[in-house]
Design a protein around this nucleic acid. Structure first.
Lengths: 191, 191
DNA sequence: GACACATGAGACATTGATGTCTCACTCGGG
DNA sequence: CCCGAGTGAGACATCAATGTCTCATGTGTC
């Protein structure tokens, strides 16, 4: 009798497994399926039952990441209201999916074959948001929308990692990202 | 006769190989030594002559990255003058090493065993810079120094990737990073 | 209590990356 | 002209990860 009773039959939560995998793979892309399974608290056999193989896992990660990102854009209604408010709402809605987003923007082994079609749409919506802010006079025009978009991705990833590493508190991450992105680190009069 | 004449005996530029490896590995950490060698324009045999194996390559990458980062901190004299200026100088000096820095802060498979001793020193110097800025009244105090440090890492990496992907122009990256980090994307009165 | 279902543990063959060779070639220098 | 250093190409054995099994265990349902 080598089997210990952990007491739990419930079907594996794929979403949770994918989140864990994203967090791990973002910092150690060479992690074996064994490590990924252990990190997710399941056996390699079970991991393999839910995802045919490494490629399938990565693909599912990409699929879910894009879907969640798009859902966040919708939920935040980034096309409505002033760009500043839209950006704040977006960051709030996207923070729970930070691990997935970080993986998407970091591991571009994905884009070896052909970039996932959905990504273009998302990128365009992001760029539009910043362009809109520039046209309305809210955002400065000397920083291109493309750069602002990439910067947001980078900050979200940085925050996720900082939390994971214990460098910043888990709560209030959205505020840190939003404040830095919107106002920078310099002390401002309007603040 | 299957050998083509490429005409070039010059000893391989280790630094250049490491930079190339960093750029590649940051976006595809599962890249084989074959791919790394090809990306660097050398054969796998030669790559292996200069770096005993994958682990040795990663270690050299870490070593060089930390050394260059420290050199940048020194060259920028971040402990002198006002924090804002110091930060600008730092970004200017660090931009050429963006690929290495991005690799260091992204691939934390490195920190599996024991974190490289030199990293703590660097992190501390960075945090000190932001703390100094806060104490002098230049930087806002509602964003912790630790977060500002991580944010800088994230932005540098994001910029390096954006350039590599062709989303922003190679020239003027330092300005983009510095402006965003210091002033944010919001249009400001003082700008 | 019997049953179906999902899982964990582990055996096994296969594949691809890796580490180590040897050999041919080129270039620069004596 | 010859020689040595540095490199590219490729063969080869090895090893770790992977994909595919089987079987035992635990859980929830009836």
């Amino acid at each position: 009798m080598s089997h210990v009773s952990y007491g739990c039959l419930m079907t594996v939560d794929k979403s949770q497994v994918l989140r864990t995998a994203a967090t791990l793979l973002t910092r150690k892309a060479t992690a074996s399926l064994d490590e990924i399974a252990k990190a997710a608290g399941i056996s390699r056999a079970t991991l393999h039952r839910h995802f045919a193989g490494r490629d399938a896992l990565i693909e599912a990660l990409e699929e879910m990441g894009i879907a969640r990102f798009e859902a966040a854009l919708d939920a935040a209604a980034i096309e409505e209201g002033d760009a500043t408010g839209a950006l704040r709402r977006l960051i709030t809605h996207i923070e729970p999916e930070a691990a997935l987003l970080a993986f998407l923007t970091t591991e571009n082994q994905l884009f070896e074959g052909e970039p996932h079609a959905g990504w273009d749409r998302l990128d365009e919506r992001m760029n539009s948001l910043f362009r809109r802010g520039q046209e309305s006079g809210e955002f400065r025009v000397d920083l291109t929308a493309a750069w602002c978009t990439e910067a947001l991705y980078g900050l979200v990833g940085a925050a996720a990692w900082a939390v994971h590493a214990g460098r910043i508190a888990p709560r209030g991450t959205e505020k840190l990202i939003a404040e830095l992105l919107l106002g920078g680190v310099r002390r401002s009069m309007e603040q």
